[in-house]
Design a protein around this nucleic acid. Structure first.
Lengths: 217, 217
DNA sequence: TAGATTGTTAATCGATTAACAATC
DNA sequence: TAGATTGTTAATCGATTAACAATC
């Protein structure tokens, strides 16, 4: 059997940006777009967009470009956004609460299905219509609801153990807000959200600019 | 004059992770670490750590490894974390409020210096000891306080104009929470925090796993 | 001294870009 | 038909890894 070349992970991470831009174009009533135009919106070369899409099929027309709605549908299907994915959220402190309430998660393929916390005070309280459950219920609830995707917003010191519990229960992908690199098997996917690390890399460029300026004097 | 090879941006984005891991080791009383040990903690090869550090100097000892405290100090200095950077936050809605209150920002080189919002209701209210100011004050306040770093947490539709105002006032680096790719000149740096895009790439792997499983049947 | 580990060079791997035939 | 733009191949660029002499 002939194996199709697997798309690199960088390609996968760009697809949601293509989809978002196409959603915007669609909402603006634009029906057709070229790789050039799409690329300018998201700071990516036209060649890269065409190359990225080529891993999945042929979606455009020579001389014309891409039908916005059709391409969007293709990309959403590729990303699995034609289905609904139940998400578990662990840790409903200040950060977890903001995440639970953030309406951005209630769109396109994602919905909150279960909340967990280890604090006695929080357990049993209701957030966004969901009861906060104790950590001990992770295994049962994750299996029952067939949860494959989880958001980690517990303190760094607890994040690894919570992740291990989730993986044991069948979770295969994580959005991790805890400032720690989580260890996991190869068949588990993690995206880290790390605003402090991001800020700490931005300061590098600021500090360098300052040095350059003072040297120029 | 001999130009030293500039460190790639991927290297800069890893340095904060090295720093964080070293801070942890330091807090645990560990005084020395090898590239091998450090790499295992953050899922990076030993060769990569040594190569990354080599862009900035020689910090280790053959046969021994790295002095944790010394290496941490070097990296923090490289990242500009030996200084304090005043940060402006634009948009104090649900998300902006959570960011303002998040204690992670109050550590290591970063502190909130100004809050802005366009909503009449919010202007004048106090958050974390700072008065919320109207957008119109951005130019004056950013210049007065010499703000070089800003966090964008306004709706996507307003993010570009706010960013333009900030850049005009002298801001050179952004942490962007708005779900949009911001246009900017080459001398401005942006890191995007995009949880929905991250989730939407994770679902790809989940959907593919499902397909593989059902095909195997 | 023997063992361990660095810093660096060269080899490998992977991703981006340029170019263009195909074709709408 | 002429002009535009795709999909794809090859060339280029950049980042990671392997290997090892230097040396603590």
């Amino acid at each position: 059997m002939d194996r199709i070349e697997a798309p690199p992970n960088v390609v996968i991470s760009r697809l949601p940006l293509y989809a978002r831009s196409l959603r915007y174009l669609l909402s603006e009533g634009i029906v057709s777009v070229s790789s050039q135009e799409l690329g300018e919106r998201i700071n990516v070369t036209a060649a890269q967009i065409r190359k990225d899409l080529s891993y999945f099929g042929e979606f455009g027309k020579q001389g014309i470009g891409y039908d916005v709605e059709k391409l969007l549908n293709h990309i959403e299907r590729i990303l699995g956004l034609n289905q609904e994915w139940p998400v578990a959220l662990v840790g409903v402190g200040q950060l977890g609460l903001a995440i639970a309430r953030y309406e951005g998660f209630r769109k396109q393929g994602i919905h909150l299905a279960a909340l967990f916390d280890s604090s006695g005070e929080k357990i049993g309280t209701e957030i966004e219509g969901l009861k906060v459950l104790p950590i001990e219920h992770i295994d049962r609830v994750v299996r029952e609801q067939n949860v494959k995707l989880a958001i980690i917003s517990v303190p760094a010191a607890r994040a690894q153990e919570v992740t291990d519990l989730m993986i044991a229960a069948g979770v295969r992908a994580f959005l991790n807000y805890a400032p720690i690199i989580l260890q996991r098997p190869d068949n588990v996917w993690i995206r880290d959200i790390d605003p402090v690390a991001s800020l700490h890399s931005l300061t590098y460029y600021l500090a360098r600019e300052e040095t350059l300026r003072s040297e120029a004097e």
